[in-house]
Amino acid sequence: MGFNRRTVLGLAAGSIVASVLPAAAETFPERAITLVVPFAAGGSTDLVARLVAANMSKSLGQQVIVENVGGAGGNLGAARVAKADPDGYTILMGTVATHALNPLMLKTKPYDPVTDFAPVSLLVVVPNVLVVNPQLPVNNVKELIDLLKANPDKYSYASSGNGTPLHLSGELFKSMAGVKMEHIPYKGAGPALNDLLGNQVSIMFDNLPSSSAHIKAKSLKGLGVTTKERAPSFPDMPTVAETVPGYETYTWNALFAPAGTPPEIVASLNKAANTALTNPELITRMNDFSAQIVGSTPEALADHVKAEIAKWEPIVKSTGVTLD
């Protein structure tokens, strides 16, 4: 299990690789697995990761330990996994940010979302939501637009980081609604939510899972979900598109291993992940915040990533968002 890419590529006899990797796959896993979440603790991706990791641990017989590696809109954590040994012991909770948006926005790309990863499984699709601090004098999307137009550049909105789906949600909203507000990036949804709750910032586009409890407790106002249809867990909350026709964003969570991970190990991780998604408690939690459970083959996830890149490319170009 100590082989890294350089060691494997340097082996003169291909038969050695062929004999060692399947043998390793047969005993996988023999120790704990690190699941890298490329954002700070407390956000939607972190929540999904911890639910999935706990149930994968049961299936695999070894702990799946969540490690938060936040920063650079998810790029630091994703790049770490891309460069990790392809042995299945370091895997990534990827998102639309790490595997579609960031690669489209970044001037310098630390990894390739297609060639540097081995897809494992598409786990869930998650709505985003427009939330505001209760002290902001608005109760719906129209009132927010009117307030922003009457006070250009006075208000700011938070996101989980530059280039994230939440950042793009805000920029798309500004463009389509014809309003101005400053973007304040954080190292994850958790820190951004803390400042929103404390009224250091007034507005945020968040993943619905991490804001749902605050909306129910009325510590935040949910103005609208960003999907085409209303979220089942909040049937009375309108969509943003009901006020801004055509507006739509969302995110998703999926498992990836480094490129070169043996297919047998990918298959083991896929089986454990998809089994985790059948756990009744996990299903209940996901339903609570309207996360749509998927579970897929590695091949289906590979196709999904390519489709997402193709879908978001014209949107990213239209907003003009680029990242250094």
Rank of each mutant, 00 (worst) to 15 (best):
G88V: 00
G73L: 08
Q200S: 12
G88D: 04
L60T: 02
L193D: 06
F173K: 03
T108F: 11
P191Y: 04
G188K: 05
V81A: 10
M176G: 04
K154R: 15
I65K: 13
K187C: 09
S202W: 04
I145C: 07
N199R: 02
V126K: 00
P127Y: 03
K180E: 14
N68G: 05
E143K: 08
K83W: 09
A150F: 01
A79C: 04
G163K: 01
P119W: 00
D116L: 08
N139W: 06
V114A: 05
M204K: 07
N139I: 03
L136D: 04
Y157W: 11
L193V: 12
A150D: 09
A97I: 10
H99W: 11
K83A: 14
T90C: 14
G198N: 14
H183T: 10
M93F: 08
M93P: 04
G77T: 05
N102G: 15
V120H: 01
V179P: 04
A177S: 07
P152S: 10
A79S: 14
N162C: 11
N75C: 12
F173M: 09
D116I: 08
S169M: 11
A189Y: 03
L168F: 12
A79D: 07
P134M: 06
G70E: 12
S156H: 13
A72F: 11
M176N: 09
S159G: 13
S175L: 12
V66M: 07
N199A: 12
L172R: 15
S169L: 08
A189F: 04
P127N: 03
P191H: 02
V125Q: 10
N75Y: 04
V126Y: 00
K154Q: 14
N194G: 11
P119F: 00
N75E: 14
V129Y: 02
M176P: 01
E67D: 12
L193A: 03
G71T: 05
K109E: 05
Q200C: 03
V129K: 01
S202G: 15
G71I: 07
T95A: 13
D146C: 09
L147W: 06
